[in-house]
């Protein structure tokens, strides 16, 4: 787990540098966080240029060091895991409530869709709170591939 964590951030770093190669499979057409501008609450294009992997997305969703989505959202599909949060809405049936381009926009920059007051972190944005710890500075919470994987997973929650 630790290794994949490191690789994930290495990948995010590579994206930042605009590198066209990476260990974690970011593509040459990966959209950088700076370029991922939300328009009318949507973001149409895949951040990686390809479809995400729902199985991997499910793991990223549950992983406390990555998405940690269960901290705030209940999700019956992960009923095997204890302690689902109540801070955000349940994600049961979320695929029927939002289009993919809306889910992507919320994941990238929650504030641009849900409003400035939302508690939800922005998972693919560099401008976050002040005093960010050194090891997280200049990094997004998830990399492009992980965001697309989680979106692919959310789309299965019908």
């Amino acid at each position: 787990m630790k290794k994949s964590f490191v690789i994930a951030f290495a990948a995010a770093g590579a994206v930042l540098l605009g590198a066209t190669y990476s260990q974690a499979g970011s593509h040459s057409n990966t959209v950088s966080p700076e370029m991922a501008m939300i328009k009318d609450g949507t973001f149409e294009k895949s951040l990686t240029g390809g479809a995400g992997d729902a199985e991997k997305g499910k793991k990223t969703f549950a992983n406390r060091k990555l998405g940690n989505c269960l901290a705030c959202h209940a999700n019956k599909d992960l009923a095997s895991q204890p302690f689902h949060g109540e801070v955000g809405p349940s994600l049961d049936g979320v695929a029927g409530r939002y289009e993919e381009k809306q889910l992507r926009a919320i994941m990238i920059n929650s504030k641009s869709v849900l409003g400035e007051a939302t508690i939800m972190p922005s998972f693919y944005r560099l401008e976050n709170g002040i005093r960010t710890m050194k090891k997280f500075k200049g990094k997004t919470i998830l990399n492009a591939e992980q965001v697309e994987d989680v979106i692919a997973y959310l789309k299965t929650l019908k």
Binding site: A71, C72, G129, I130, M133
Partner: peptide, 28 residues
């Protein structure tokens, strides 16, 4: 009320806006 850190939250986000709710196993 100042948002801090990569997760971008202030004290108020949890302890004023969401007290009484569960955040994973914790009761805010």
């Amino acid at each position: 009320y100042t948002r801090v850190g990569q997760l971008d939250m202030s004290c108020a986000n949890c302890h004023e806006d969401n007290y009484g709710k569960r955040i994973r196993a914790d009761h805010l």
